[in-house]
Design a protein around this nucleic acid. Structure first.
Length: 113
DNA sequence: GGCTTAAGACGTCAGTGCAA
DNA sequence: TTGCACTGACGTCTTAAGCC
């Protein structure tokens, strides 16, 4: 049993405004190996042939979606890794700036004794 | 060794955006 | 309008780690 899905928001860009790497859409025209193109609709006759065609279309769609999901997950992992390394860089940068600020405070503040 | 549990990977469904 | 790619959400399975 599946629950109704939430709307897709694509809010990953909220922080930076950049297109997340895992959302960049590359054209994927190549079919997976072993996929046979459909017969032309005009060549279908019996209800059984129609049913077979529907089944074949569904299997093709599932196979494509399966591959798309794998690729989507791979891109998302890459994107998260990229964000994590950026966080690490920014934390170092922030620490240095805080240290610099403290140094300047020491230099500029009047002596109290 | 058998158990519980958390984490990760996977397949599927459903909703969205876009090009033709 | 339609077909398709993309992706969030969900359920299931597998595996590793911790506990008894």
């Amino acid at each position: 049993m599946q629950k109704p899905n939430m709307a897709v928001t694509g809010d990953e860009t909220a922080a930076t405004g950049d297109m997340p790497t895992y959302q960049i859409r590359a054209p994927t025209t190549a079919l997976p190996q072993g996929v046979v193109m459909a017969a032309s609709p005009g060549s279908l006759h019996s209800p059984q042939q129609l049913a077979e065609e529907a089944t074949r279309k569904r299997e093709l769609r599932l196979m494509k979606n399966r591959e798309a999901a794998k690729e989507c997950r791979r891109r998302k992992k890459e994107y998260v890794k990229c964000l994590e390394s950026r966080v690490a860089v920014l934390e170092v940068q922030n620490k240095k700036l805080i240290e610099e600020l403290e140094t300047l405070k020491d230099i500029c503040s009047p002596k109290t004794d």
